[in-house]
Write a protein that binds this DNA or RNA. Structure first.
Lengths: 189, 189
DNA sequence: TCTTACCTACCTACTAGTAGATATACAAAA
DNA sequence: TTTTGTATATCTACTAGTAGGTAGGTAAGA
């Protein structure tokens, strides 16, 4: 099965952004990666900001589909939180790549409104998912000590994103696990 | 009192890195900010990597001096942890700037060995400070539920750095406080 | 007179982006 | 069936602007 050029471009761009940031790659890099002339990329994505927006939108869709899948398939809030942590663990690739959102955090100022909007929408969706998960935990008791789901949600997101940054420097996945273990330790079922 | 050019350059560079990342500013931007010709910057910092290394080293020194001051002046581990969280809170400037370390995280791959070494040294120093703080908490009881100081240290660092990222997008300091409140809530004295 | 701290003028390499030609495929009209 | 038209996806060749960095000169102070 051959992947169409547009998808190949998005794949390569996402990879590069997560490795080096939005300012860390060029259309020239991309053309080498995909095997297409630099100018041809502009056919699919007229401006770099279009590409940046497109990969953020796709990333949001992919992650939210996974999270919604956990809501459907995993019976307890604790299991869903564990799965959530694993999404951010897998995104690391042994420290070589970051979650797209973390990678976007630094360059954020130079982004187009469309890109920024896509990021905010994604973060809100993840937040809501976490709030629901912690609210469920209050009912099913699968996570200890939950009194404020909203607070727990922003705390949990900070932990996994912060753990990514730490692991990025150490290139040791054990540090990610150590950073998250206080959160994981509260899962009882 | 007039600040010397080298310091002015480092001040401007640090500001820009924390706003836009290491790839987000140029010697040209810097020359405008400081009022010196672009070529003259090379007199003080022959290569951009020299400047990047210098501001990381200075930042590390400043932060560690502050933290060591807390160890000296603040009687309980709880008070020291609260002060630590505040360092990362103040670094945010309402969401417009990040801690230099977080700002460096994305571009990290393209850095010189000297710059990387400076980052690692700094992170190790902060880690050690946190480990000592949590170890003290086990003795003075000023933070609840501390059983593993090393684990607590990496957890706490992840929380404050992750909280910075979240706040960066929302530009609402309340989100930083909310993300840290689970950690702060464990301080009893 | 040597050092410090700047300058002008320049270089090469790369950036995003544009213009216009071309090859292919597929469908409607002659 | 052949011709014509059109959309898709690519190409070559180019632009203006910016990147980091260098060469060599200059003015002031120790």
């Amino acid at each position: 099965m051959t992947t169409d050029t547009k998808t190949q471009l998005m794949d390569a761009a996402e990879q590069q952004v997560r490795q080096k940031g939005a300012d860390g790659f060029s259309y020239s890099d991309l053309s080498t990666a995909v095997g297409i002339r630099k100018a041809s990329i502009h056919y699919h994505f007229p401006a770099k900001s279009d590409l940046l927006t497109a990969i953020m939108a796709r990333y949001a869709k992919t992650v939210m589909t996974a999270l919604d899948g956990y809501t459907r398939d995993l019976p307890t809030a604790g299991q869903r939180l564990a799965a959530f942590i694993n999404v951010y663990r897998d995104a690391l690739n042994e420290g070589s790549t970051l979650c797209l959102c973390v990678a976007y955090a630094v360059s954020q100022e130079g982004f187009s409104d469309a890109t920024k909007a896509e990021i905010v929408t994604f973060r809100d969706a993840v937040s809501d998912w976490l709030i629901n998960t912690f609210a469920d935990a209050q009912t099913d008791g699968s996570i200890t000590g939950v009194t404020d789901p909203k607070m727990e949600a922003s705390h949990a997101l900070a932990v996994v994103e912060g753990a990514q940054i730490a692991t990025r420097f150490s290139e040791d996945m054990a540090l990610f696990d150590q950073s998250c273990s206080a959160l994981k330790g509260r899962i009882t079922g």
